[in-house]
Amino acid sequence: MTVFVSIQGLSVSRGRNRLFEGLDLTLSAGDCVEVRGANGTGKSTLLRCIAGLYQDFQGELTAEPCAYLGHNDGLSALLTVEENLRWYAGLSGGSASSKDIAAALATLEASHLVRRQARALSAGQHRRVALARLPLLGHKLWLLDEPYTALDDAGTALVDGLIRDHCASGGAVMAATHADMSVSTAQCWVDR
């Protein structure tokens, strides 16, 4: 049972106020943890710490390389959906054929957007394309910061399916959300 993330006594403070302290957590294959807490209590900061983007923390933290989806979708407005996804696959060391890209988009029912420039997408479509890159990156650990923003019900169901399949095939997911996730296996409250 490979462990993707292990955290002991993690505490983070922003300036002089402390966001959270003494956080313990382990994430292994098949886990899907919901990170919960009121606004501004450090949910995003926790994910950024695990992803390695934020180093100002005390405590023990070891994590595998991960695929991270932040508040902004990380899509270049002037590039088409295909160009964005091909760049992502190449960046993470792999490569993506048109078939892989089509398959990834299909899981989120966004295949028809493949030729469109990112700036021409609606917020929901933009988010779906951003999520579509996850299977292409070849990382088992996914860190998602509010994945459901701007998604309609159909979109939310598709994302749940994506996460369920990923966990089933030995991956692990940590998602910061405001509402209960149907696919989550555990909850982690940062502000309790």
């Binding site: 992803a51 390695g52 990380g74 899509l75 270049s76 960046l91 993470s92 060391g93």
Partner: peptide
């Protein structure tokens, strides 16, 4: 600036095996 604002800049540091190359 453009990559910083749309979020692709942090992906370079995250995903690239050797971030110096990109």
């Amino acid at each position: 600036r453009r990559d910083f604002e749309d979020g692709s800049l942090e992906q370079i540091l995250l995903l690239a095996e050797v971030p110096f190359l990109p």
